[in-house]
């Protein structure tokens, strides 16, 4: 396993992705001590400040002190820098949780559909049905029903991803099932559940990890889109999407409100995608040649 890690880490794209993501994770964890203020605090005196402006800022404790707005303030006088840094938390949590949730469900369903022909016929039609539901519509419905919460957003994004993962895993299982080592396991009397866990699953892990990164990237984007459309988290919880949604109104006078969350979002998605591409190049034998260069 060590050798696999070393091989993967040789890839430039993997390194870039991992470095950018590690920096983001550190920023998210250390958000309270990075010179930020309460990201939800409205300060009517400091509305639409330009980046790098220093002005007196009155906090929730009614103390007034000079503060430098690194990324300026929005039209409610909230500090954009604090909002963007806290926003990392939401994006990463949504991205990773959606990837994990859809991988767990998708893998289980995919294993069942791929290995048992009878399950396949029914399950895949259900999956086809799920893929026909427009993601945004589902999000509107769920937010209407359960309210705008983090868990609602995660479920709204994860559900449409599950059929995609299921299809991938099913396709992998269908080809692995025909391998002679599976027949060999059957003929030494290995029970089916053990074959699935010990032979089929380990041999489909690599493409699943790669798929997981793509799911993660698209979940981060989707969360931003939902927030931008006003279907995501309320603006007390800063997310890149709702920062940009509020910035849209004042875009011509205060474009920085849009730029900073936009740049963070783009870099995060780029890093996750590059990590995924790098993993695919190194782990997928079909792309191995390119990965070794």
């Amino acid at each position: 396993m060590n050798a696999v890690f070393k091989h993967v880490l040789k890839n430039g794209a993997v390194r870039f992705g991992l470095i950018v993501l590690s920096v983001l994770v550190i920023l998210a964890i250390l958000a309270p001590v990075l010179g930020t203020v309460d990201p939800a605090w409205l300060d009517a005196i400091n509305m639409n400040q330009k980046p790098m402006t220093t002005a007196d800022w009155t906090g929730p404790d009614n103390k007034t002190a000079p503060y430098t707005f690194l990324m300026g303030t929005d039209s409610f006088g909230r500090d954009v820098y604090s909002r963007v840094i806290y926003g990392i938390r939401v994006s990463l949590v949504v991205g990773v949780t959606v990837a994990v949730v859809s991988l767990i469900f998708g893998t289980f369903l995919g294993l069942m559909a791929g290995y048992f022909r009878r399950v396949d016929a029914i399950l895949m039609r259900v999956m086809d049905g799920m893929m026909a539901i427009p993601g945004i519509l589902l999000a509107i419905a769920l937010v209407a029903a359960w309210g705008a919460k983090l868990s609602t957003v995660i479920i709204a994004i994860a559900v449409p991803e599950i059929p995609r993962v299921t299809r991938l895993v099913r396709a992998l299982v269908l080809s692995i099932r025909e391998e002679p080592y599976i027949e060999a396991a059957i003929s030494v009397g290995t029970p089916t559940w053990k074959i699935l866990l010990k032979h089929v699953l380990p041999n489909s892990v690599a493409p699943m990890v790669v798929q997981g990164t793509y799911v993660c990237a698209s979940a981060i984007l989707l969360e931003a889109i939902l927030s931008f459309l006003g279907l995501g988290l309320p603006s007390e919880i800063p997310t890149w999407g709702n920062i940009m949604a509020e910035a849209r109104v004042v875009f011509s006078s205060a474009p920085h409100n849009m730029w900073f969350p936009g740049i963070f979002l783009a870099f995060t998605v780029l890093a996750v995608n590059m990590l995924g591409d790098g993993l695919r190049d190194t782990l997928d034998p079909k792309f191995n040649k390119r990965g070794q260069k």
Partner: peptide, 16 residues
């Protein structure tokens, strides 16, 4: 009854 298969590269699980 045990069986030995043709392709030595595919009859052993590469992850086992």
């Amino acid at each position: 009854i045990q069986i030995i298969f043709q392709d030595p590269y595919r009859s052993l699980d590469p992850r086992q």
